[in-house]
């Protein structure tokens, strides 16, 4: 038993070390750009932003709207019974902006782009495209990993903020139609509850979740060795580990603030 725990702990540390190495190398490639391949890397980055950020807008809009509607419906019907009807605005800030917005956005990004990155890199490994890049003297980190990581981080931050805004809007739709709370009263409640720390925290979570998801998915994609059957296996692992890591980061970032 002790041996098993020891083995798992070492494996966990090794895994986190591999992710840290991948992320730090990508960060170095970002801040120490060379003239070589700058345009090519930029093209990959733009494609990643389009795929992860822009293409994800419709699904993010739908989920955020529905979430806002659900939360305000529940809060608007339950809180007045406790004599706290005026807290509807702050409930949406507490639940969406601080917690559910960043988390659900991360889950959307993992499901769409994280899985796509792991699959793409897995297929590239099997078809020896990764080796071909190495043979051409094109660094994998600079051409493949860094643009994907940066694209995912930027997209995640923007999508998280967008998610929060749309969810609040969804909440307002219900507040206005069902609970007949006027727009200004709702907005006042939201603004009163919202602090600059909340906005900074939601952006920070976007940054951390984006980095974690990109690193995990790139790592698992490149872990594919010689068979196409490994690709879905590694993709599944990448998705599960991304979910777990995002929740872990969320706990580490959030809990100290409220202790």
């Amino acid at each position: 038993m002790i041996e098993w725990v020891g083995r798992k702990t070492i494996a966990g540390y090794t895994y986190l070390a591999a992710l840290a190495t991948l992320s730090s190398q990508a960060f170095l490639d970002l801040i120490l750009p060379t003239r070589q391949g700058r345009r090519e890397s930029l093209q990959v980055l733009v494609r990643q932003i389009l795929f992860t950020g822009v293409d994800a807008l419709p699904v993010t809009t739908v989920i955020a709207l529905l979430l806002g509607i659900i939360i305000v419906t529940q809060a608007g019907t339950q809180l007045p019974r406790l004599g706290a009807g005026g807290l509807v605005g702050s409930i949406i800030v507490v639940t969406v902006v601080r917690e559910l917005g960043p988390l659900l956005t991360a889950f959307i990004v993992v499901g769409r782009s994280g899985a796509a990155i792991a699959t793409e890199l897995g297929n590239m490994s099997v078809t020896r495209e990764v080796v071909a890049l190495r043979l051409m003297g094109i660094p994998l980190s600079r051409f493949v990993i860094m643009p994907r990581m940066v694209g995912m981080v930027l997209s995640m931050i923007c999508l998280t903020l967008y998610f929060d805004v749309v969810a609040v809007l969804g909440g307002y739709l219900v507040a206005n139609a069902h609970l007949t709370i006027p727009f200004y009263a709702f907005l006042e409640g939201v603004i009163k509850a919202l602090s600059s720390t909340d906005v900074a925290l939601t952006a920070l979570k976007g940054l951390l979740f984006g980095s974690a998801v990109a690193a995990v998915c790139c790592h698992h994609g490149l872990a594919v060795r010689s068979s196409f059957t490994e690709v879905p296996q590694q993709t599944t692992r990448a998705m599960i580990n991304s979910f777990v890591l995002c929740l872990l980061i969320d706990v580490v970032v959030t809990v100290p603030l409220y202790l």
Partner: peptide, 19 residues
Amino acid sequence: PSPVRLRLGAVLQQPGLMS
């Protein structure tokens, strides 16, 4: 990558064209 890579052209059994 070592600079010598740019003086080397190689095609393996699986040519690895970018799909």
